[in-house]
């Protein structure tokens, strides 16, 4: 009976997850004629700096998200129930808006004639170059993916029993010690899934870098898109880049999971 119920999901996974993955691998290891080759993977190495930039920017965005989201989730989880739901709704609110529109709004905010620079010019400052920089790309990532960090953190922290914290305080922990010895270890699963949910989409995004980075801060996502819609149609190289990206993400996630040593939960 159990098997019967899960059949549709298994079918779904096979058709829409496993088969496409196999196709990506197939394209990555073949030429246009279908012969086996390693040239595609070798060709990926010429884009090393794009890979490094993507990993670097995504890592910065993830760290910033964590720094912003952690205190917020902590405060949220410890506040009134009614206040909590209102705040949660405000966290979710930007996500109701279309992704492109949200990013587009930042273009009008950050531009040389944008709202922020017009505000500064009232005081005779600027204009500051904010749009078309790497900073703008990171900002776009942080802004778009912040809710994905807040929500898992909040869920975990809400479940932390208040009596555990009280016990720690009773036994003589100051507030710093309570935070680092009790709350942080207990919220580790939330931190891990938060990092996964921000880092993975951030590293493979392409529209943010195009809209806010001015097209000259290429990320891996842009590179993959260019193989399909660029001057030369090269799905094999595109698949190879995707494959390398997947392996890199897999590795980074395995390593991150090792920090969560105490329980062997798999968070991916």
């Amino acid at each position: 009976m159990k098997k019967l119920i899960s059949a549709p999901y298994l079918l779904w996974m096979a058709v829409f997850i496993i088969v496409p993955l196999i196709m990506v691998a197939y394209f990555a290891f073949t030429t246009t004629d279908g012969a086996f080759t390693l040239d595609n993977l070798a060709a990926v190495s010429q884009y090393t700096n794009i890979f490094i930039r993507s990993i670097w920017l995504a890592a910065i965005a993830t760290v910033i998200c964590l720094i912003i989201a952690y205190p917020l989730a902590l405060i949220l989880a410890r506040s009134d129930k009614s206040y909590q739901s209102a705040m949660l709704m405000i966290v979710m609110l930007p996500m109701w808006m279309n992704f492109l529109l949200r990013t587009y709004a930042w273009m009008t905010l950050l531009g040389n004639n944008g709202l922020i620079n017009s505000f500064f010019s009232l005081f005779g400052l600027g204009p500051f170059k904010m749009l078309n920089t790497q900073g703008a790309v990171v900002l776009g990532m942080v802004y778009n993916y912040l809710p994905y960090m807040i929500l898992p953190l909040y869920t975990v922290m809400e479940k932390i029993d208040i009596s555990v914290i009280e016990a720690a305080q009773d036994l003589g922990c100051n507030s710093r010690k309570t935070l680092f010895k009790v709350i942080v270890p207990l919220s580790m699963p939330g931190i891990m899934s938060g990092i996964t949910m921000v880092f993975v989409p951030a590293i493979s995004t392409f529209i943010i870098s195009r809209m806010l980075g001015g097209g000259s801060n290429l990320l891996i996502g842009d590179l993959i898109e260019m193989q399909f819609l660029g001057n030369s149609y090269n799905p094999n190289l595109g698949a190879a880049i995707s494959l390398v990206l997947m392996v890199i993400i897999l590795l980074i996630m395995t390593i991150l999971n090792q920090f969560d040593e105490d329980d062997d939960r798999v968070l991916m």
Partner: peptide, 27 residues
């Protein structure tokens, strides 16, 4: 296409091409 990609990502010097494989190996 290759020249274009190179031009667009030419901000910094291209680092050693073995960095990514080395990094993966390290991981």
């Amino acid at each position: 296409q290759t020249l274009w990609t190179e031009m667009k990502s030419s901000e910094e010097e291209t680092p050693n091409r073995f960095i990514v494989p080395a990094f993966m190996l390290l991981c």
